[in-house]
Simulated assay, not measured.
Amino acid sequence: MSGFENNPFADPASDNPFHDPSVTQVTNSNIEPVDQYNPFPAHPTDSLATHTTPAATSPYQPAVLQPSTEPSPQATAAAAQANLLRQQEELERKAAELDRREQEIQSRSPGGKENNWPPLPKSFPIKPCFYQDFSEEIPLEYQRVCKMMYYLWMFHCVTLFLNLLACLAFFTTDSANGSSFGLSILWLILFAPCSFLCWYRPVYKAFRTDSSFNFFFFFIVFFFQVAVFILQAVGIPGWGNSGWIASFTIIGKNKAVGAIMIVVACFFTVCAVLSVILLKMVHSQYRRTGASFQKAQQEFSQGVLSNKTFQSAAASAASSAASSAAQGTFQGNN
């Protein structure tokens, strides 16, 4: 009878897929379905608000535009006048400073520097005639040679003074040698300043300004100076030089005077040797400077044309020639 109690038209339980245990487990669970899930649950957020950190207040205050206050025309004019007065005072101060410097320059040498050679005391009536400063005016690579030329000139002056003393001693022993003593005085008076002006100062100015003309002038004059040194070292009797020949001539008559003259002859020999060495040194330095004979001619022509004395002489000659020509033309017309 059990078979008749079943409904033949009912769906079998085994054919219903929703009666599967896995499906029924899911449908009967307490988990909310996806379509009913709320991602923002309504839980309290007061506790989070209590833990929030407030933003730090900035120490800088926001810029506030201030109303622009334009100065009045009277204030602008007063400020401009004060500025002009200040500029005028500054210009007057600078003008006074320039006048003072110009007076100082005019009171100095033509080179714009106060002369310091020869080093004479300020109370001395004669003032220095030249300005000389190796460290300031001479380039570093030429200072050694230039100083050696200066020391050679000083050594030459000392030798001339000793030669005068030797000739004086010789004159005291033999009054017939008065001419040698007189010539020794002449050589000291003549050669000491002339050697300074004719070959030392030209080589100093040549190294200072890299002047080809001064180099050539120095070489011409110093060549004759070397010849003079050699003649003084030789010591021809009666020429006022205590050289080797004069020393050996007198040593047989008076040994003391002969010994003094031999010392002076040694000094003249040292002068001759040093002059030859320094001449070669200056020539080697001259070749490094790039000087030439063409540059010397240009410097000479420029110096002559820029010389005020030459300009005045040329102007006077031109004016006299023009006046004479005009006078001749006037007489010819008459």
Rank of each mutant, 00 (worst) to 15 (best):
W199R: 01
V264M: 01
F18N: 09
W187R: 06
N83G: 11
Y131T: 06
P41I: 05
F267W: 04
S175D: 09
S320W: 01
P193Y: 04
F229C: 12
R208L: 02
P125N: 01
K147R: 14
S107Q: 12
D46C: 09
V226D: 05
K205C: 07
S312C: 09
D210Y: 13
Q225A: 15
A272H: 03
F218H: 04
C194M: 14
Q103R: 11
V145E: 07
I277Q: 11
Q232E: 13
V276K: 01
P71G: 01
F267T: 05
D46H: 11
M154A: 15
Y131E: 03
F215H: 07
N214W: 00
T53G: 06
F310M: 01
L186D: 06
N333E: 12
G178P: 02
T50G: 14
T309Q: 07
T24W: 09
L188V: 04
K295A: 05
E102V: 07
K147Q: 14
D99G: 09
V221H: 04
F219A: 15
S211T: 00
S316F: 00
E137M: 12
A192Q: 03
T159V: 00
Y142W: 02
R201N: 09
S14L: 12
N115S: 08
K122F: 06
Y142D: 07
N254L: 02
E90R: 13
F222R: 00
L85A: 15
V257G: 03
D46F: 12
K127C: 03
S22F: 13
G235T: 00
G238D: 02
C129D: 10
I189K: 06
P41K: 08
S180C: 02
Q87C: 06
S301Y: 03
L274Y: 08
S312L: 09
D35N: 12
H156S: 15
F191L: 15
L165K: 09
S72D: 05
N6P: 08
R287C: 13
Q331H: 13
N16Q: 07
Q74R: 12
P21F: 07
E70T: 13
Q106K: 14
S107E: 14
K280Y: 15
S195V: 02
N115I: 04
S2P: 05
G112P: 01
A77N: 05
G303D: 00
S292Q: 03
L231M: 09
A176K: 15
A326E: 04
F171L: 04
G182S: 13
E90H: 10
L168A: 14
I262T: 08
G238Y: 00
R144Y: 07
F155K: 08
Q61L: 12
C157Y: 07
V221G: 06
S212C: 01
L305A: 10
V270Y: 06
A95G: 05
F229K: 02
L91V: 10
R93I: 04
I189V: 10
P125Q: 02
R101H: 11
N6V: 14
D210S: 15
N254H: 03
H51A: 14
A256K: 10
F215G: 02
A42Q: 11
M1S: 15
I277D: 06
Q327F: 13
A78C: 07
F248I: 08
A206S: 09
G252V: 08
V234S: 03
F171K: 02
K113H: 14
K147E: 12
V23Q: 01
Q74I: 11
T27M: 15
E114S: 14
L140I: 08
S301D: 04
G111M: 08
A317D: 00
V158E: 12
P125W: 01
F215D: 04
